[in-house]
Structure formats: structure tokens, C-alpha cells
């Protein structure tokens, strides 16, 4: 029972952290003129929840992060994009995590790539233009690199917090 309360408290902290990360990231201007290229620092918190608490809790934390970030700092448009990216990314990350074939680095890389695929799919659907698909290769490669950076950061985070959960 006491352990359960701890886990719930940690989930709350990570939800708040993920939201702050999402917000901070929206303040940083993108250095290249292509949509969808960003570090994805909120994913550090999501990775930490998957590894330190559990994947089911990660689903809840991720859902709350996307919902509340959109309500507080975004709009319907931004909600649809982050929901598409966030949901597909988490689905792929959980699949990779459960397969036990990859470390946190690979899980994060797969998540980064899936996030950008989800966003391109949403853009194609929303704007009804298939030409947007031509951005996919660049975004896929970008997702691998940013996913790797976040994976390393996530690995370090998990290493340091695991003892206290």
C-alpha cells in the first residue's frame, strides 16, 4: 500500500515534469525551417516512467501530458499533432520495451522515429495533401538522432531515480 502511494506520487511528478518539458520546448525556436524537428525532451520523463514505474503508468502520464499541454499552452491544432506523435511513439516504445531486444537507447530511437511518422501522418490527414509525405525521410533521420540523445539522457535519469522508487 505504501509503495503504491509512492508510485502514484511519482506519476504525478513525472506528469508535471513532462508538461514543463513540453512547454520549455515550445519556447525554443527550431534552428531549421522544417516542421517537426525537435529534441523531444518530454520523452525523458516518459522513458523514466516506463523504466522506473511501468508501461501502463506511462500511458496515463503521456495521455495527461498531451491533454494538459494542449489545454494550457496550445490549441486544437497542436493537440492533434502531439496526440498523433505521442500515441504512436509510446505504442512503439512499449512494444520495443516489452520485446526486451533493445536497451533504453533503442527504445528511445524507435520512439523518436515513430513520433515523426505519426506527425507526418496527421499532417497528411489534416491538410489533405500527400506531398507532405516527402518530408518523411528527413524527419525519420532527425527522429533517430534526437531519439538517441533523449535515450542517453533517459538512461542516465533512470539510473539515478530507480533506487528511490
Amino acid at each position: 500500500m505504501k509503495g503504491n502511494v509512492r508510485r502514484i506520487a511519482f506519476c504525478g511528478v513525472f506528469t508535471a515534469l513532462a508538461m514543463v518539458f513540453s512547454y520549455i520546448e515550445s519556447l525554443i525556436p527550431i534552428p531549421v525551417p522544417i516542421y517537426g524537428i525537435k529534441l523531444g525532451i518530454a520523452n525523458i520523463a516518459i522513458l523514466a516512467v516506463i523504466y522506473a514505474i511501468g508501461w501502463k503508468e506511462a500511458v496515463i502520464v503521456n495521455f495527461l501530458r498531451i491533454l494538459w499541454t494542449a489545454i494550457l499552452f496550445g490549441n486544437m491544432n497542436s493537440f492533434l499533432f502531439s496526440a498523433a506523435g505521442g500515441a504512436l511513439s509510446l505504442l512503439v516504445m512499449i512494444a520495443c520495451y516489452k520485446s526486451r531486444k533493445f536497451s533504453i537507447l533503442g527504445v528511445s530511437i524507435a520512439g523518436g522515429a515513430a513520433h515523426n511518422i505519426g506527425q507526418v501522418a496527421m499532417a497528411v490527414w489534416l491538410m489533405d495533401s500527400t506531398a507532405i509525405i516527402y518530408y518523411l525521410p528527413i524527419l525519420l533521420a532527425a527522429g533517430v538522432f534526437t531519439g538517441a540523445i533523449i535515450g542517453i539522457a533517459g538512461g542516465l535519469t533512470v539510473k539515478h531515480i530507480k533506487a528511490s522508487i
Binding site: 533493445f102 533503442g106 525519420l140 533517430v144
Partner: peptide
């Protein structure tokens, strides 16, 4: 396996 995944995606 992570590196193979990254290489395949790239």
C-alpha cells in the same frame, strides 16, 4: 541491437 535499429532506420 539499438545500433542496428538506428542504422536500419537511417
Amino acid at each position: 541491437a539499438d545500433l542496428w535499429l538506428a542504422a536500419a532506420l537511417l
